[in-house]
Nucleic acid binder design. Structure first.
Lengths: 224, 224
DNA sequence: TGTTTCGCAATGCTTCTGCAATGTTGAGGG
DNA sequence: CCCTCAACATTGCAGAAGCATTGCGAAACA
């Protein structure tokens, strides 16, 4: 397991490095944002341990940078600040976990193990098709940059279809995505939502089309 | 996004459910370990929110159970206990994240989003022959990657033949695959479907051919 | 409490599908 | 070698099944 440790405080860095090594991890150490960027770009790590307070800026800014390069390495952020809004920001910027200082080393280790066990996160935050972009994080649909507001159910239909653009989505699987279990829907409610969604997509000229396939389900296609 | 919420305290459960729904998630609720096990087994979720203190035991024991069934759904554990050793146990039993009560709902959401940031594409079995690929799970036929939409009966014929590519399929066995038991078909309906299917496969240049064998049945062959 | 959204049912439309009529093929017998 | 007949192939058609669309009342939402 190769870990990139980004931490400017020499004492803590050294202690962590030693402790991680003791658990059979190979640790590279970066003391600044700049250095960390270089390391992350040139080497491939199984996880990145990232301090926020670095001499040349907020460590968190590193995350979108490496994500933009298509790098999905799990990032665990270490920080002195521990209020909720900070955590939320961190996670939403693409970090995978967040640990407030001071922390128990055992917990760091356990969280690290949980991250390493997770399958590689290659999923992009935004799904695109035709002229539309679906921002999964902010649950927002944009058509050529203009927001398109959709009701909840239609949004769910669209999301399920977009996750398999150009491929079949079974009716049953759509039903499951849109209505849970407890809803006992026995009408053509799904068809209704598809229909309304179709109209809105056409009106917004989103350059996508929803095709129904009899007896099977639906699929969303890009159109020229 | 489908979430399984396992929480016995009705008030919190209801509040969470509402809040999650407001963020476009489809939530199923289980109030006990037993119920949760059933839900997790029969349905597929994108994430599980799991309380530890349940009337019939420690929620955490659910995690190894579902993992043993090959289910890799991300699990976020909620708990009142917040000491390090508990967290370590939780994460090491296969949970993906751990959040101590009381928590800010925003943090829960952010952590959930981090967990969900992964591909939802379930792999299903695909049979190939010639230039065709039949995705059994999604009931979809692709010819060189392009979807070929077929009516239900023709799809059934194709599936039955593909399952025995290059080998004879008895007429009677095809009848059963296509019409099942209940239908009382006494015409040449099967021949009709085979014929129509042949035409479509030829039009799509699928590099497969259906040969009829007098008195026996049909077989599907790859052609150069 | 006004507004949006949702599920439902009624309606019209498209596609499917079993059937039958007609054409074609091939094996066996004369 | 050709004839015969049954089995298979193909195609048009009408009934049926499935889907699309819309308006409406009720529920959820802000």
């Amino acid at each position: 397991m190769r870990i990139l440790l980004v931490e400017d405080e020499p004492e803590l860095a050294s202690a962590l490095k030693t402790a991680l090594r003791r658990h059979d991890m190979v640790v590279d150490h970066a003391a600044s944002l700049l250095e960390a960027g270089d390391f992350a770009a040139s080497e491939s790590y199984d996880a990145i341990l990232l301090d926020r307070q670095l001499p040349d800026g907020d460590g968190l800014t590193l995350v979108p940078k490496i994500r933009a390069r298509g790098n999905a390495t799990p990032v665990l952020v270490l920080t002195a600040r521990s209020d909720t809004s900070d955590k939320v920001d961190g996670l939403d910027m693409g970090a995978d976990d967040y640990l407030a200082k001071p922390f128990a080393f055992e917990e760091l280790l356990a969280r690290l193990r949980a991250l390493l066990r997770r399958p590689a996160n290659v999923q992009t935050q935004v799904i695109r098709a035709g002229d539309l972009a679906f921002d999964l994080g902010h649950r927002e649909v944009l058509v050529r940059g203009e927001p398109l507001t959709l009701p909840r159910r239609e949004l769910l239909v669209l999301e399920a279809l977009l996750r398999r653009t150009g491929r079949m989505v079974q009716r049953s699987s759509l039903m499951e995505a849109v209505f849970g279990l407890d809803d006992e829907i026995q009408s053509n409610a799904l068809d209704t939502h598809v229909s309304r969604l179709r109209r809105k997509l056409a009106e917004a000229d989103a350059k996508v089309e929803i095709n129904g396939v009899r007896g099977v389900g639906y699929l969303l296609r890009e159109i020229s």
